[in-house]
Design a protein around this nucleic acid. Structure first.
Lengths: 231, 231
DNA sequence: TATTAGATATGATAATTATCATAACATTGA
DNA sequence: TCAATGTTATGATAATTATCATATCTAATA
């Protein structure tokens, strides 16, 4: 973890999202002047379940996992967040403490703003409030959608689902570095690490994917999509 | 379904929640004067996945299920909502259409208000906005919590979980009428109807519960809690 | 009231998944 | 550089869960 010197401002941030459009320059300055940027390296914990939420976190670049403690020292990964994500949004309006932990999957830059400032803006700027609430709701709905989809699938279907997710949604490439270990994949789609490994090997033997250390190449996307649908 | 004559008003509604405290009398009247109350009988559909959200729904009394279409004609029940619940809150700020269906599990009275009016109040009343967003976030977090808890349990643990949920959270009694069929329980905790039936029978034979048609009586709460924790 | 569809119930069997064991390999830190 | 630790890998086996078959009971309806 490393606090970065600020060269940029919110006003002309290329990772700014639509949600900030509701804020005028004065309001953006209000955020900007207490803003910090922090760089986290792969594996570093950004926020921890149970800790007080003092700050609003915006994921400028990188990738992180949102997870919670499950039974018997097993974590459960709730979602993966990428650039421009309001990663601390879940539970900051309903809870004093983080309900989920955050940790970096790749080198990640997070913008940090005093949480009270954001709450203030929600209170005083109705347009911004609607945008924030919309974004929050959308994120939650996505979690529910993927959780309930995965829940109905068998193991092969789950692995296919997650491979397609990384390929199509996260990296938009057929070849990508898996940002999760086999164990983390297991924590994300609710199966054992051994079975994740086994089924990935199976897909490799069946020439559906190619595996080179952490790199995955999707060879037969059609078959993967079929397995995702029916498996 | 039956539209009821209005004898009550929001101002002195006994089912009003804290969230409405942020509204003054004028704002409550603003809601009240287009408000309808509708009575739904067990089994009736209140809102359907995919339909346009035109109205904000407040569950005054009764019980309903929130569910979505899963694979192969199987529904997936996301949550159960009781009195004073903002049942249409999920997805009304992120979506034009209902992402989830609602149907009555008991005779249920729903207050119906134009959705635009509520959005307007969120926009103009910052305190109300914070309350609504807090309530929404809380509801979503509850869904995630129970979904991820259930997901780690085996079948016996799931059944124990759901029996304790109805006994402790919904009815606050050891004896209650199950508002769900075996099939619906299966849809809620992700297992087959046969196994729901089988395990309920097993619990009956083990004298953990007593079953009389739709009535459940919890005899050995301690054992049920242990199964919930470890099963 | 008779009929039909759906809910509850139970058993046998098959399919799926987890667990346990073991090994090779990679990575990290002393 | 060498332990030590964690990750990936694979096989054998046990445990869990779903599926299929069948029967009874219940509730709705013509």
């Amino acid at each position: 973890m490393e606090i970065m010197g600020l060269k940029s401002s919110c006003k002309n941030c290329p990772y700014k999202t639509l949600v900030f459009d509701a804020l005028d320059n004065e309001e953006l300055d209000f955020i900007d002047n207490s803003r910090k940027e922090i760089l986290y390296k792969r594996g570093e914990v950004i926020a921890e379940e149970g800790n007080l939420i003092k700050e609003f976190l915006y994921l400028k670049t990188g990738l992180l996992k949102v997870y919670r403690k499950g039974r018997g020292n097993k974590n459960q990964i709730i979602r993966i967040a990428g650039a421009s994500d309001f990663v601390s949004l879940l539970s900051m309006f309903s809870n004093e403490k983080y309900k989920y932990s955050l940790s970096a999957l790749e080198d990640t830059v997070v913008c940090v703003v005093d949480a009270e400032k954001i709450k203030n803006l929600v209170k005083t700027n109705g347009e911004f409030a609607l945008d924030v609430i919309g974004r929050m709701s959308y994120t939650y709905d996505e979690i529910i959608d993927s959780t309930y989809r995965i829940r109905q699938k068998q193991l092969r279907g789950r692995i296919a689902h997650i491979l397609l997710y990384f390929s199509k949604t996260v990296y938009k490439k057929k070849r990508f570095e898996l940002p999760l270990s086999r164990r983390e994949i297991a924590e994300l789609i609710n199966m054992t690490t051994e079975n994740v490994i086994r089924i990935l090997s199976e897909f490799r033997k069946d020439k559906i994917i190619q595996i080179e250390k952490k790199t995955i190449i999707i060879i037969d996307k059609g078959r993967l999509e079929k397995i995702n649908k029916t498996g």
